[in-house]
Lab assay of single mutants.
Amino acid sequence: TTVHVNGVTYHFPNPEEAKKFVDRVVKEAGLTVEVKGNQWDVE
């Protein structure tokens, strides 16, 4: 699973890890998340 955060790419072994990361980032920074298949874009 690939997560893009403001142009930076993070790779995770599974969607659960990616979701935990995204949830944390979104809570801390108040960002928006767009999910496209296995790819997350966070802005």
Rank of each mutant, 00 (worst) to 15 (best):
T1S: 05
T1A: 07
T1E: 02
T1K: 03
T1H: 06
T2P: 01
T2S: 09
T2Y: 13
T2F: 12
T2I: 11
T2A: 05
V3D: 00
V3H: 00
V3R: 00
V3I: 08
H4S: 13
H4P: 00
H4A: 08
H4K: 14
H4L: 14
H4T: 15
H4I: 15
H4M: 14
H4R: 14
V5Y: 14
V5C: 14
V5L: 12
V5K: 01
V5W: 15
V5G: 00
V5I: 14
V5S: 02
V5M: 10
N6T: 01
N6A: 05
N6R: 04
N6I: 02
N6M: 06
N6F: 08
N6E: 04
N6P: 02
G7C: 11
G7S: 02
G7D: 03
G7R: 01
G7Q: 01
G7F: 01
V8Q: 07
V8P: 01
V8D: 05
V8M: 07
V8L: 06
V8C: 15
V8T: 05
T9K: 11
T9S: 10
T9I: 15
T9F: 08
T9R: 09
T9N: 06
T9E: 14
Y10N: 03
Y10S: 04
Y10G: 03
Y10F: 06
Y10Q: 03
Y10A: 04
H11A: 03
H11C: 15
H11K: 04
F12G: 00
F12L: 00
F12K: 00
F12W: 01
F12H: 00
P13G: 06
P13Q: 10
P13M: 09
P13K: 09
P13V: 07
P13W: 06
P13I: 09
P13L: 12
N14K: 01
N14F: 02
N14Q: 01
N14D: 09
N14I: 02
N14A: 02
N14C: 11
N14E: 03
P15Y: 14
P15F: 14
P15R: 05
P15L: 13
P15D: 13
P15T: 09
E16N: 04
E16K: 04
E16A: 09
E16F: 05
E16P: 00
E16C: 09
E16D: 09
E17T: 04
E17Q: 05
E17L: 06
E17I: 03
E17G: 02
E17Y: 02
E17W: 02
E17C: 09
A18E: 01
A18D: 01
A18L: 04
A18R: 01
A18P: 00
A18H: 01
A18K: 02
A18V: 01
K19M: 10
K19T: 04
K19N: 05
K19I: 05
K19V: 04
K19H: 09
K19E: 07
K19S: 04
K20G: 03
K20H: 07
K20W: 03
K20S: 07
K20T: 04
K20I: 10
K20F: 03
K20Y: 04
F21V: 01
F21M: 01
F21G: 00
F21A: 00
F21C: 03
F21R: 00
F21N: 00
V22H: 05
V22I: 14
V22P: 00
V22S: 03
V22Q: 03
V22N: 02
V22R: 05
D23P: 00
D23F: 01
D23G: 02
D23R: 02
D23Q: 04
R24E: 10
R24Y: 11
R24Q: 13
R24A: 12
R24M: 13
R24H: 09
V25R: 02
V25T: 04
V25I: 15
V25F: 14
V25E: 03
V25Q: 04
V26N: 10
V26I: 14
V26S: 12
V26Q: 10
K27D: 05
K27Q: 08
K27F: 08
K27H: 08
K27M: 10
E28H: 09
E28F: 07
E28L: 11
E28S: 10
A29K: 11
A29G: 13
A29S: 11
A29P: 08
A29L: 15
A29E: 09
A29I: 11
A29C: 15
A29V: 09
A29R: 11
G30Y: 06
G30R: 06
G30C: 15
G30H: 09
L31M: 12
L31K: 08
L31P: 06
L31Q: 08
L31T: 10
T32K: 10
T32Q: 12
T32V: 11
T32D: 06
T32N: 10
T32I: 12
T32L: 12
V33S: 07
V33Y: 04
V33C: 14
V33L: 09
V33W: 04
V33K: 05
E34D: 11
E34C: 15
E34F: 01
E34Y: 02
V35A: 09
V35R: 07
V35W: 04
V35D: 06
V35H: 08
V35Q: 08
V35T: 08
V35E: 07
K36P: 10
K36R: 13
K36M: 11
G37I: 13
G37Q: 08
G37K: 08
G37T: 09
G37L: 13
G37S: 06
G37H: 08
G37R: 04
G37A: 05
G37M: 10
N38A: 06
N38I: 05
N38H: 06
N38Q: 05
N38P: 14
N38R: 03
N38M: 06
Q39N: 13
Q39C: 15
Q39P: 07
Q39V: 12
Q39M: 11
Q39K: 09
Q39T: 06
Q39E: 12
Q39G: 12
W40F: 12
W40I: 14
W40Y: 12
W40A: 11
W40L: 11
W40R: 09
D41E: 14
D41N: 05
D41W: 15
D41L: 14
V42P: 12
V42R: 05
V42Q: 10
V42D: 12
E43W: 03
E43F: 10
E43R: 05
E43H: 10
E43C: 15
